[in-house]
Amino acid sequence: MKLKFQFTLAFILSLLSLICFSGMALLINGSKIVAFDRSIISLIQGFETPGLTTIMKCFTFIGSTPSVAVISLFSLFFLYKVLKHRAELILFIAIIVGSPILNELLKLLFHRARPDFHRLIEINGYSFPSGHAMSAFAVYGVLSFLLWRHISTRWGRTLLIVISTTMILAIGISRIYLGVHYPSDVIGGYFASGCWLAIAIWFYQRYQEKKVEQRDLLKVKNEYDDISTRK
């Protein structure tokens, strides 16, 4: 029952994320979100100070490809050696590797230019959706999913969600603060990565469900064979 619930939940979340991303993409193509983007950028960059800029650069670095690679390697080691995960490693790798590939495909599809005003760092490439936002959501999202069942206390699970949510939001906000992404890029990145994450978990839960069904069938078969042998 628990697997079936998780299976259904993953499907619903993937569908909702896809719908939200599609809506964001339509708004961007129709240039109907410019006012929203500029108002949020003005609000966030209004807090600019030298100290905050340093902090935002740190979060952007944490969300960069080299940092994500290091975090992923440590996570794989922890999942394999400490928690004895096996099948979960495939899910983790698929999500982490698939996220940047999906991001590049979407950027080539939409060809959205980056903001050209008040940049605090320089970067090339297209803007929508944000690769940092997608990577952050993928990494901390899948880690939360995999670690959740190993944490039995409410405060532990709460702490896990708070840390993951903080990292996801901070990395996304850092891209807006530094002037290299529109808010809609970041939000679109969250939705795109959320869709990818939920689809991957959906297939993983489907695999787990089939394993349980096969195990139950084998158990029934063994019991039947044992009864037949006794007769």
Rank of each mutant, 00 (worst) to 15 (best):
F92V: 10
K4G: 01
L120R: 04
I173P: 05
G172R: 09
N222S: 06
K107P: 01
D37A: 09
R206Y: 12
R112Q: 11
I173V: 15
H118G: 00
Q6N: 13
P66S: 06
D116G: 09
K57D: 02
I176M: 03
D37N: 15
T53L: 10
A138L: 07
A136D: 11
I161V: 15
I161M: 13
I176V: 15
K219H: 11
W202N: 07
Y224S: 14
R86F: 14
T53A: 07
K81D: 08
L146Q: 04
G98D: 03
T54M: 08
L159R: 12
V180K: 04
H181R: 10
I12H: 01
R119V: 07
T229N: 08
G51S: 13
L83K: 14
F203E: 05
D37E: 05
G141A: 03
I173E: 02
L120A: 08
P100M: 08
K219F: 07
A35M: 05
R157L: 02
R112A: 08
A136E: 07
F7T: 11
G51A: 13
S31M: 06
S72A: 15
R215T: 13
V34Y: 03
T153A: 06
G23S: 04
D225P: 00
H181Y: 12
P100D: 05
C20Y: 01
I41C: 03
F92S: 08
V186E: 06
A138H: 02
L43H: 03
F203H: 01
L102P: 04
C58L: 14
D185Y: 13
V142P: 09
T158Y: 05
F92R: 05
R119W: 03
F47W: 14
I199K: 02
M134Q: 14
D225K: 14
T165Q: 01
T49Y: 01
W202P: 01
L3A: 11
L91W: 03
V97L: 13
P50F: 07
A170E: 04
F59H: 06
I19K: 06
C58V: 10
N103E: 11
A113I: 04
T229R: 14
G141H: 11
W202I: 01
L147S: 06
I12M: 07
S135P: 00
P183E: 04
F61E: 12
F59S: 04
W148C: 12
F191E: 05
I95Q: 05
S152A: 15
F47C: 06
M24F: 04
L76C: 13
F137I: 09
R206P: 00
C195D: 05
